[in-house]
Design a protein around this nucleic acid. Structure first.
Length: 341
DNA sequence: GAAACGTGGTC
DNA sequence: TGACCAAGTTT
């Protein structure tokens, strides 16, 4: 079996993406802080979404030291809207680890990098390959798609057998030379030509040996995962607002959805629980009006959100002026608050 | 191995 | 409109 690295590298030089914001200029080494940050942001998140967040993030936190010195809430404020908020918490923890244990220098051993929270096998490989040209494989969604088509790998990647086979192939193709470029090249191929729908095989530098191209079965690979029904849940979100139109927000526990963000008081969406929760919060709190119920969908369930505006004196000291918030809010909470008069 | 974990884009 | 999916990791 021939490695795809040579034709891919040749293609990359001409057609690859060389101007992404986390990529250093030609002949300048990549900044491992930028590479690490981008790789974490890009987990399960599209490049077009990440670009603005990345640029904004490094403006707020230009160095690992500045990220380490920031508070968790300051980091959440810049991360809010990107999703998968454990990533933001792990970012802060990792910055502290690097400042304290590695004197601010990004670690260069695979064992050290994969031990950082939020860094798994693929991200560790990508960081070391792209930052230091080390010889590690990656297996992100692009590589999975390219290799499963090229080799007609059976099974979906929720299955460990399939994953194991893909990892084996990924390591096989990883070259000893120019692995930084190869790593970027195979991701670029997956992102720009070997896309999920309508792959542009005409332009593909490895089409001649691609089994799916030869049999015109590109759309069968990667095999799709069996679908599951998503449950729908309901929740009431109580907007306690005082005379100055400050809002009561509370920090969510790290475990669970929107962990570490600030959010509204929640309870089951029925009259009894709502009334009880309001009374418990403050005896003289009164419902102003119920707002329109809307649906917010996650990967694994749908959430019907019933926002309820409540007038309440600020006796808890937890009411926040919306204008000067520097904390992270869940997307639907941000939407609710923005629509208040 | 399976489930949890966000959000926006696409068809 | 709703299902699917995008540079995965953790429990």
């Amino acid at each position: 079996m021939r490695s795809i690295s040579k034709p891919l590298l040749k293609w990359f030089d001409q057609f690859g993406r060389h101007c992404l914001p986390w990529q250093a200029a030609q002949d300048i080494p990549n900044n491992p802080y930028h590479v690490w940050l981008s790789e974490v942001m890009l987990q399960q998140t599209q490049v077009t979404t990440v670009i603005d967040y990345f640029n904004n993030f490094i403006q707020y936190f230009p160095t690992l030291a500045s990220l380490s010195n920031a508070s968790e809430d300051e980091i959440f404020a810049q991360w809010a809207g990107l999703g998968y908020y454990a990533r933001a918490r792990n970012l802060h923890t990792t910055a502290n680890i690097i400042m304290n244990q590695y004197q601010g220098n990004f670690p260069t051993e695979f064992k050290q990098v994969i031990d950082l929270p939020g860094v798994g096998e693929s991200t560790a490989g990508a960081i070391l390959a792209i930052s230091f040209n080390q010889n590690h494989a990656i297996l992100d969604g692009n590589v999975k798609r390219v290799l499963s088509r090229y080799h007609q790998v059976k099974g979906h990647y929720g299955q460990s057998k399939t994953l194991k086979e893909l990892w084996h192939l990924a390591r096989y193709h990883t070259p000893n030379e120019r692995n930084a470029d190869y790593t970027q090249a195979i991701m670029d191929l997956g992102a720009t030509l070997c896309t999920q729908r309508k792959p542009d095989c005409e332009q593909c530098p490895i089409q001649s040996d691609c089994l799916s191209q030869q049999t015109n079965t590109q759309n069968q690979y990667p095999n799709s995962k069996p679908k599951k029904n998503k449950p729908t849940r309901s929740i009431a979100m109580l907007i306690f607002r005082d005379d100055k139109h400050n809002i009561y927000l509370q920090k969510r526990p790290n475990k669970g959805i929107w962990g570490g963000l600030w959010s509204l008081v929640e309870c089951a969406d029925n009259e009894k629980d709502i009334q009880q929760t309001i009374t418990d919060f403050h005896p003289s709190a009164l419902i102003e009006k119920g707002l329109t119920i809307f649906k917010h969908s996650f990967t694994h369930y749908h959430l019907l959100i019933h926002p309820i505006l409540i007038h309440c004196p600020d006796v808890k000291g937890g009411f926040k002026p919306l204008s000067q918030l520097n904390i992270g809010l869940p997307k639907p909470v941000d939407n609710i608050i923005c629509q208040l008069d």
